[in-house]
Amino acid sequence: MFFASDNAGPAHDAIIAALATANRGYAMPYGADPIMDEVRAKIRTIFEAPTAEVYLVATGTAANALALACYAQPWQTVFCSPVAHIHEDECNAPEFYAGGAKLTLVGDGAKMTPDNLRSAIEGEETRGVHGPQRGPVSITQVTERGTVYSVDELRALCDVAKSFDLPVHLDGARFANALVALGCTPAEMTWKAGVDVVSFGGTKNGCVGVEAVILFDPDKAWEFELRRKRGAHLFSKHRYLSAQMNAYLTEDLWRLSATKANANCARLVAGLKEAGVTFLHDPQANIVFCSFPRAAHQRLHDAGAVYYVWSGALEGDDPDEMLEARLVCDWSLSETQIDQFVALVKPA
Rank of each mutant, 00 (worst) to 15 (best):
Y30K: 10
Y30D: 12
G31R: 01
G31T: 08
G31E: 02
D33H: 07
P34E: 15
I35W: 01
I35H: 01
M36F: 10
M36C: 04
M36H: 04
E38P: 05
E38Q: 15
R40K: 15
A41D: 13
A41K: 12
A41E: 13
K42N: 12
K42H: 10
I43A: 10
I43G: 00
I43R: 07
I43L: 15
I43Y: 01
R44T: 08
R44H: 15
T45W: 11
T45L: 14
I46S: 06
I46H: 09
F47T: 03
E48P: 04
A49K: 00
A49S: 15
P50Q: 12
A52N: 08
A52P: 06
A52G: 09
E53D: 14
E53C: 13
V54Q: 07
V54M: 05
Y55M: 11
Y55T: 08
Y55E: 08
V57S: 06
V57I: 08
A58M: 12
A58L: 07
G60C: 08
T61E: 13
T61W: 07
A62S: 06
A63V: 05
A63R: 02
N64R: 08
N64K: 11
N64I: 01
A65I: 02
L66K: 01
L66R: 00
A67L: 03
A67V: 13
L68V: 10
L68Q: 10
L68H: 01
A69D: 04
A69G: 12
A69S: 14
A69R: 02
A69M: 09
C70P: 05
C70W: 01
Q73W: 05
Q73K: 11
P74K: 08
P74N: 13
P74R: 03
W75T: 13
Q76L: 14
T77E: 03
V78P: 01
V78Y: 03
F79W: 01
F79I: 05
C80N: 02
S81G: 12
P82A: 08
P82M: 08
